[in-house]
Amino acid sequence: MDHDSAPPANPPRYKLRLFITGSTPRSTAAIQNMRRICAEHLQGDYDLEVIDVYQHPDATRDYQIVATPTLVKVLPEPLRKIIGDLSDSERVLAGLNLAQEP
């Protein structure tokens, strides 16, 4: 699992879970888009896990995932799900409450 986080003394602000299905085209696109957004906007202040639902089908139950790819923002609250390959950066940033920031 990915864990590009800051030192443990200072818990990261964003806790993100990306659900994908193996190397399907949307899943691979979602992974690439997520990496780009994290690098551009979150400055390392995040904890991202990419979960392959083929490998862990039961992991979808906790967050009621109905389709992949789906990004789940666990923290900060409220919990928010963004469906799709995350190619619409504005929609993703809005979902992460980052839209207003310049």
Binding site: T21, T24, P25, R26, S27, V53, Y54, P57, D58, T60, R61, I65, V66, A67, T68, P69, T70, I83, G84, D85
Partner: peptide
């Protein structure tokens, strides 16, 4: 925009990939 749907059932979660996903 998605290429798989997850269906919950009595025998657990099942993943159905959509067209071209495989």
């Amino acid at each position: 925009e998605v290429d798989a749907v997850v269906v919950g059932g009595s025998s657990g979660q099942k993943v159905y990939t959509l067209e071209n996903a495989d």
